[in-house]
Computed example of a mutant assay.
Amino acid sequence: MARTRYASDRGLTSRMLVTMFLLGLVYVAFVTAFFVISPRLGVIGLVVALVFLFVQYFFSDKITKFAMHAREVSPEEAPELHGVIDRICAMSDAPKPRVAIADTDVPNAFATGRNQKNAVVCVTTGLLRRLDPVELEGVLAHEMAHVAHRDVAVMTIASFLGICAGLLTRIGLEFGLWGGFNRRNNDNNAAVMLMAVVAVSAVAYAISFLLTRALSRYRELSADRAAALLTGRPSALASALTKVTGEIARIPTDDLRAAQPFNAFFFTPAFGKGFSVSQLFSTHPTLDKRLEQLNKISGELSRGV
């Protein structure tokens, strides 16, 4: 964790280490299987994985800003927003990130960038319209906690295996559907090889997906906790969570679908009312679980614990 006044979280550190260790084992098995199936495919798979990792790690801030149509704003353009971030930086003793605004009515916020030097904190116009300054401070403290915890870098490294495995699974299935599984004579070995590649990639994708989702849920709870302790106002963060979740349910479906690919980055996922998903597959804890933790912190602060 970066050296700031954000509360340290040994639970987050240990979970990161365990998840990365398990993902490392999956990655070794994944690459080894490819080399056993075909040395050439193994080399190709390794190169593709490294390229994906490089692009994600060094250009995540630019990619996310471009995809969300976000633009960086100066203190003159958004004085109130910069003022809130300046206060959080003073409280946390953290360097100030770049500040951006995305013009969408979906009320949300996200942080991206591989480290504090390259960090960008972005809020949507929908969020700015709906939250009061105290609630906004809680949300931004949450996002800046992600930066302090180096969550973006860790999740980038943790997720790249799943991305590569998912891509290879999709390519293999599409090739197979176009006849790759039905080749005969001299191509029998190629068909068997293709099925083996799809099977290995699918297993690697499923395991890495579950591991990264579990880590993502915990990092959200950790950021909530750090923000609540830093600001001393867990109730404000709880209010923001409740308000944003309720407002998202009123957003048109098309707008939500456009935002959903970025759920892992968001303050709260862009799911409409009535949406239900297994806890195993969610990037975020349930609202009830987040509110329960904040209520517990509020009680601890009131007792001076």
Rank of each mutant, 00 (worst) to 15 (best):
A2N: 09
R3H: 12
R5Y: 01
Y6P: 02
A7P: 03
L12N: 12
L12W: 08
R15N: 11
R15V: 08
T19P: 01
M20G: 01
F21T: 15
L25V: 15
Y27T: 14
V28R: 10
V28C: 05
V28K: 08
A29P: 06
V31W: 08
A33T: 11
F34N: 12
S38K: 05
I44W: 15
I44M: 14
L53Q: 14
L53P: 00
V55R: 11
Q56E: 12
Y57P: 02
Y57M: 14
F58E: 13
F59M: 12
S60D: 14
K62E: 08
F66E: 03
M68N: 01
S74M: 07
E77H: 01
L81N: 03
L81G: 07
G83R: 06
P97R: 03
R98K: 14
A100S: 02
I101T: 01
A102E: 05
T104P: 05
D105E: 12
D105P: 04
F110T: 01
N115H: 14
Q116Y: 15
Q116T: 14
N118I: 07
N118P: 04
V120I: 15
T125I: 09
L131V: 06
E137N: 05
H142R: 13
A148W: 00
V152Y: 03
V154Q: 05
T156W: 12
T156E: 01
F160G: 01
G162T: 07
C164Q: 09
F175M: 11
W178Y: 06
A199S: 11
V200W: 03
S201D: 02
V203D: 01
A204S: 08
I207T: 00
T212D: 03
T212G: 03
L215W: 01
S216F: 07
Y218Q: 10
Y218I: 09
R219T: 11
A228I: 08
L229K: 03
G232Q: 11
A236L: 10
L241G: 00
T242C: 06
K243C: 07
G246Y: 00
I248Y: 01
A249R: 07
R250V: 02
I251S: 00
P252M: 07
T253D: 14
D255I: 02
D255Y: 07
R257N: 12
A258W: 05
A258F: 05
A259S: 10
N263H: 06
A264G: 01
F265S: 10
G274S: 13
F275H: 11
Q279V: 11
S282C: 07
L287E: 12
I297M: 11
L301S: 04
S302I: 13
R303Q: 15
